[in-house]
Write a protein that binds this DNA or RNA. Structure first.
Lengths: 250, 250
DNA sequence: CGCTTCTTTGACCCTTATCAATGGCTGTGG
DNA sequence: CCACAGCCATTGATAAGGGTCAAAGAAGCG
């Protein structure tokens, strides 16, 4: 845990049109609210299930995943964590995390104090609204995930996940949307096992399904790079109608 | 939609220890915030996916479910809606519902104005905290659901759902917890198809699994009444460790 | 280079979906 | 009061999607 290196005013995420634009005043407040930055190495745990964290975070860079582990050892990947995501809100508001957050690449996170959340809710109604918004977006996304896992077959599930991941990453990399439109390559630093655990599939079957999509020229995920020449077909396969809304930051 | 019939001061849910106790002041505020009550007949839709609702609601009585329907006709039940639940927050904050809410019994709901949410977040930090809390609880629950559907087999999934439903309903009916402890009967006004769609199982297999649980003396769901003589075993089958936290209301 | 981690591939089989038909309950109308 | 329609629960037979097991390539890394 280091001292603050990036001021909120220079936040690299802020200029990304994926996120809403905060006012000067809000930036000033957030700056004072920010405790510092945390860097986490790949494979390390950011937040542990069951732990009561005194902090919560916004992801500045790097990627990770939320997961839940059963006593039996099986695990479910709840979602993939990317820059701009808020993690640890559960612990901040309920006092305890009900899933873990782990880094898959080196991550750096903005650190906020748990007690500061109360202050934020009291003094910054706009920010309070943002927190609520982020929680609502999370709920929407989990609902969609649930529907996907509950109702679709393996090919559709994988198509859904690839499209969602690609869209999100493409918007981060290239806000203009060119990457998104042409299915251009984005970095996807996960293992097939992660995707399998996210979709309730076995590793083997995930691998074979990915191979089939690749052979069909729809999706190519190799060397940590994801390309979706057939984004349209994949989206229609997975019955994805509309896209995720723009989200607030912090 | 009728005029207000129940004042927040006399709210039948308030006295239930399942919920937190609000202050006089908060009650006064909520009373002014409440627009009225809405009654919905069984089978009717409370909120429609894709619709922009000008209101959001707290469930006063009756039960329903959140669901998502695919173009192909398949549906996923996202969760079961019970008294005390907040519905429509998505639309209030994001402008559009991403799932539908349908009544399975006659329901009555507290109606709040969407614009009032802004006011609430600004002027009632404690209530703002509650809203955030409710959103966080929802997220926790969806995460647990995801893990259940993604990782457990049919018997475990059904065991999980029955225990969760029973616990919640038992606490509503009998705050002392006697019902909960002895697995006593609670009203569960859903169809097997609803449970199947919630767990990503076919109706047939759900039925057969329920039959097996009944034969084993673990769970008996018939005539709309649910009894769980084997709550302990069911919970351990589904690897349920701890229970859901107490929740704020409104 | 040898070790570990991840990906890929083949063979087998189990859980669960699908199909199909019957039984039960409730409400309605002749 | 009975017949019929609709909805839901129940049960048996069959099949397929995906899990599990096993082992061999690739690829990063000290």
């Amino acid at each position: 845990m280091n001292s603050p290196t990036v001021s909120c005013f220079d936040c690299p995420l802020r200029c990304n049109p994926l996120f809403e634009v905060p006012s000067e005043d809000e930036l000033r407040y957030m700056s004072s609210f920010k405790l510092g930055e945390l860097t986490v190495e790949p494979g390390r745990t950011v937040l542990m299930e069951g732990a009561a964290s005194a902090q919560f975070y916004t992801v500045l860079e790097g990627m990770g995943l939320r997961q839940k582990t059963f006593p039996s050892g099986q695990r479910q990947v709840i979602s993939f964590v990317m820059p701009g995501d808020l993690v640890g809100l559960q612990a901040a508001v309920m006092g305890e995390m009900r899933h873990s957050v782990e880094a898959t690449t080196r991550m750096s996170l903005c650190v906020f104090d748990r007690n500061g959340l109360w202050d934020l809710l009291r003094n910054q109604p706009k920010r309070a609204y943002s927190v609520t918004w982020l929680a609502a977006v999370e709920e929407v996304f989990l609902g969609e995930t649930l529907a996907t896992i509950g109702q679709l077959d393996a090919t559709q599930r994988i198509a859904w996940a690839l499209v969602r991941l690609h869209d999100r990453l493409a918007m981060l990399d290239d806000p203009e949307g060119a990457l998104l439109a042409n299915g251009g390559p984005v970095a996807l630093p996960y293992r097939q096992q992660d995707l399998a655990d996210a979709l309730g599939l076995s590793l083997v079957h995930t691998n074979k399904t990915l191979a089939r999509l690749k052979a069909g020229g729809l999706a190519d995920w190799s060397g940590g790079q994801l390309r979706l020449p057939g984004r349209r077909q994949l989206a229609s396969l997975a019955m994805i109608d509309d896209e995720m809304p723009r989200r607030p930051l912090l």
